[in-house]
Nucleic acid binder design. Structure first.
Lengths: 141, 141
DNA sequence: ATCATCTAGGTGCAGTATGCACATAGATGG
DNA sequence: CCATCTATGTGCATACTGCACCTAGATGAT
């Protein structure tokens, strides 16, 4: 399997298939919180989070890791690979740990908003038994 | 308050302040499912979903509405404003209703992924009582 | 030795998303 | 006439992401 190419949802709003924008960054941070790792390995371990069928492009992973390093949330060093070329091993920094905490708080907020959406949706559907019919003509006041 | 300018997080990953990419589109669809409306009014009603402090830029709203119209998920017509300039009134189409259903299913999936993240996070923190200390040196195997 | 393949990291480009600044324009009141 | 509010919109810069493609070491088969 040379490089996980193929698959993928197509970028953005028109697809709706990628839902809300992917939150790969905090997932990578969390994985690195569990210990040093490198891009290719992280890519495999992302499966844990269950990105449905769409395991993210490797280029995205490598770019996020570089971006994290620029901001000093991780550091990297080159190491020998067990078999194959050298690997760039990333280590979470204390700042990166704090950044992960921020992300978690942020995602909890996102979760609240998401549930507010579901709640609004269900309230609305209760009143209109909808699902296939068009919207009714309802004035706001 | 001329036009809701100011405020707002910087765009994207580096901020973490906007969390996961905003899902304004389904919110607008849901609001339109409740009846016809126009951009400026929708902007106000977005508060319902509790986008923390960041009520979204008006330009984004107008652009999403146009994009929805291009894809025929909504239609629009010009109407007299109660007071002030003319308004462009948007109406959800049956296709738009179906699209909203797709979004809901997609967001439910996102919700599952989000909770898998929280679950991973909590499991991890249980073992490391962390929060302020850097990551420990743990090998994967 | 040469070649295919796997592992690993990376660049270039295009499409999409989004905030901010700013433009346009009708309505209203001083 | 001008300031202000309502309402819609454009231009620009930045950012995220997928896809195609590139580089390069290691390994095994021919």
């Amino acid at each position: 399997m040379p490089g996980r190419r193929g698959a993928g949802a197509g970028g953005g709003r028109r697809a709706c298939g990628s839902g809300i924008r992917r939150f790969l960054e905090p997932c990578l941070l969390l994985l690195l919180h569990g210990g040093e790792s490198h891009g290719y390995e992280l890519l495999d371990n992302l499966g844990k989070f269950g990105f449905s069928e769409t395991p993210a492009d490797s280029s995205t992973i490598y770019r996020i890791l570089r971006s994290l390093e620029e901001r000093e949330f991780v550091s990297s060093r080159w190491a020998e690979g067990d078999s194959g070329p050298a690997i760039r091993v990333y280590t979470l920094s204390p700042e990166g740990d704090g950044y992960l905490q921020m992300w978690v708080r942020d995602l909890e907020e996102t979760d609240r908003i998401l549930h507010r959406f579901f709640s609004e949706y269900q309230d609305h559907m209760k009143q209109h038994h909808s699902g296939d019919a068009g919207p009714e003509e309802i004035r706001k006041e």
